Simulated scan of single mutants.
Amino acid sequence: MHTFLETLLFATLLISAVTAKVTSHSYTTAEDISSSKTLFISQFQFEKEPPRGTLYAEVGNRNLIVAKSADTDEFQVTWTEEHKLAPAGKYEVKIFTEEQQSNLRKARRDGESTDSITPVATLEIIHQGVSKGPWMSSESVACVAAVLIMYYAYTKKGAILA
């Protein structure tokens, strides 16, 4: 009977850890003219009490430390990627506690499966991709137009004086 209660308690704790609800909003770079890399920022807040200690995020094969705001209960995950390596689409950000992150590293180092380690929360970032912008900048168009107008005025002036 004692084992059944322990199992039930463990299952309840596991389910509550898996279903931790967060509200989040994100930003990604929209154009590549002003930057050399795509920036991903996701801010989130737990609807209930956030886990204690340091939080970690996993995006693909990249492990990141989650920053916590000193003034509010908001957390932030930020990373950059080369434009070519950051195609448009959904990016899944898994949030782990310090203990879970340690277990992940140990399981990977030992070649074991990490399927049993469930994240505290999972965020989804939708990246629209980066725009290459116009193939010719507006400054270049203005310069070409100015040169053409000057050439036209100079040739007309020569025709009037001749």
Results as ranks from 00 to 15, higher is better:
V18Y: 11
T29A: 04
L64F: 08
S26H: 11
T38D: 06
V77C: 06
T72I: 11
G111Y: 10
G89R: 08
Q45N: 11
H83I: 05
E81L: 13
G53C: 07
D71S: 13
L13W: 15
Q43F: 10
V18W: 12
T28N: 13
L13D: 11
A20M: 08
T12K: 09
A20I: 00
R109C: 00
E92V: 15
V120F: 05
F96D: 00
D71W: 10
A86F: 03
L55T: 04
F10N: 06
L13C: 12
L13E: 12
V77Y: 01
F75V: 01
S102Y: 13
E82Q: 10
E49S: 13
V120S: 06
G60Q: 07
E112G: 03
K37L: 12
H25L: 08
V120P: 09
I95H: 02
L8K: 14
E92G: 00
A107D: 09
Q100P: 06
T80M: 05
T29G: 03
A88F: 08
Y91K: 03
K21F: 07
R105I: 03
G60K: 07
T72P: 08
S34Q: 05
A70D: 10
T28V: 12
E99V: 09
N103G: 12
I65R: 10
V77K: 02
T114K: 03
Y27Q: 12
S26L: 01
S16V: 12
I33Y: 15
T38F: 07
L8E: 13
P119R: 00
S35M: 11
L9C: 03
F40Q: 02
P119W: 00
S24Y: 08
F46C: 05
P87D: 06
D115V: 08
N61W: 02
T78V: 11
E49M: 09
A67Y: 04
T97N: 08
V93K: 00
K84F: 04
Q76E: 10
G60R: 03
A30V: 05
E74P: 04
R62L: 14
G111P: 06
R62C: 03
K68W: 01
P51V: 05
F44R: 01
P51F: 00
E31T: 13
S16I: 07
K106S: 11
Q45E: 11
V18K: 12
S69Q: 08
S42C: 14
V59E: 03
L8V: 15
E92L: 12
E47I: 13
L64D: 04
Y27M: 04
A88R: 15
V18A: 07
K90M: 08
W79K: 09
A57I: 10
K94G: 00
I33R: 14
K48P: 02
V77H: 02
K48S: 14
E47P: 04
A88S: 15
P119S: 00
P119Q: 00
T97D: 04
K84S: 08
L14N: 07
Q76S: 12
T72S: 14
K37Y: 13
F44V: 10
T72N: 12
A11V: 14
V77M: 07
T97R: 05
K90G: 01
L8I: 14
T38A: 14
E31G: 03
V18L: 12
K21Y: 05
